[in-house]
């Protein structure tokens, strides 16, 4: 058997894959956070709750209406986006003129409400969500066995990240978004409905979290607290990458997932904290983050 630094190759590749999958979720979530932060200057603490909401919506659709994974992949994120748009319009939008910390505190409270309600109603235990029929089983890659669904998640997350990147960098809507990030007043004076743009942006970011939640359901089970610890890691990812760049958020997400996977192989005790340690090191060396501009 091939060994690298005393570790069997299949074990290493297996952990790498797990790292890559975790990284896919880090990338999707930090992308959403960066999109929201870029325009709204709000750190969306409810991002983890919206991720959970996506997974739960898919689960409830399946249990109560029999709607399966594929339709849920579209419907659940839309539901999450719609709820979030409503919250932005009625409440969050009142806080934009205040210190940005209030946005963080508000979304923190929101996260407690959403997660607390689901835990109260469904308990803390995870609910299994079956892998879609089409993607059950796995593929033997020769050096390792790859469950099809996990391969799908990796590909899907890359496609989604790329699509969002293109939306922001190459479309007219994206140009509005980038311009409004720099100078919202002027964009508004030109006749663009910036308040609506803010709502759509929040909905987009939250919808991305919801989409990540649906993708996560077959892998991690569906539980009310599935997002609450994840979001803190994603915060660290975002601090490491710096929030200035969409591309930076995506790349940092994947890289840290993989680094975390590697840590599980070489020094498993530290795998829980490796992201935070990297964050501390990056902050000491480059406070603005790897891709960030100093603000």
């Amino acid at each position: 058997m091939t060994m690298i630094f005393g570790i069997a190759l299949p074990a290493l590749l297996g952990q790498l894959l797990i790292g890559f999958i975790n990284g896919s979720f880090y990338a999707l979530l930090s992308l959403g956070l960066a999109v929201i932060f870029g325009l709204l200057r709000v750190i969306n603490f409810a991002h983890g709750a919206q991720y959970m909401l996506g997974a739960f919506t898919a689960y409830l659709l399946l249990v109560h209406t029999g709607i399966g994974f594929w339709p849920a992949l579209v419907v659940a994120p839309l539901i999450v986006a719609a709820i979030s748009a409503l919250i932005e319009r009625t409440m969050l939008s009142r806080l934009y003129d205040l210190d940005h910390l209030y946005g963080l505190l508000f979304t923190f409270g929101l996260a407690l409400i959403i997660e607390g309600t689901f835990r109260w109603y469904y308990g803390a235990a995870g609910q299994p969500y079956a892998t879609p029929q089409l993607l059950s089983g796995g593929t033997n890659l020769g050096f390792m066995f790859l469950p099809n669904y996990r391969g799908f998640v990796v590909v899907a997350s890359i496609v989604i990240c790329l699509a969002v990147w293109l939306l922001i960098e190459k479309t007219r809507l994206g140009a509005y978004l980038r311009a409004a990030t720099e100078n919202p007043q002027l964009v508004q004076a030109f006749g663009v409905n910036v308040p609506l743009l803010l709502t759509l942006t929040y909905a987009l970011g939250a919808g991305l979290a919801g989409l990540a939640g649906v993708l996560a359901a077959p892998i991690y089970q569906v539980s009310p607290l599935m997002g609450s610890n994840l979001i803190i890691i994603v915060f660290a990812v975002v601090v490491i990458g710096g929030m200035g760049s969409i591309g930076g958020a995506i790349i940092t997400g994947y890289v840290l997932g993989i680094l975390e996977g590697l840590t599980k192989v070489f020094y498993p005790e530290a795998s829980n904290i490796v992201v935070f340690v990297i964050m501390a090191i990056v902050l000491m060396l480059r406070p603005a983050g790897l891709f960030g501009k100093e603000i």
């Binding site: 140009a175 509005y176 311009a179 990030t181 720099e182």
Partner: peptide, 14 residues
């Protein structure tokens, strides 16, 4: 706008 090209700047105002 710094993050927009000349053409994008030109096309921005609706």
């Amino acid at each position: 706008f710094a993050s927009l090209s000349v053409t994008e700047n030109l096309m921005l105002p609706p």
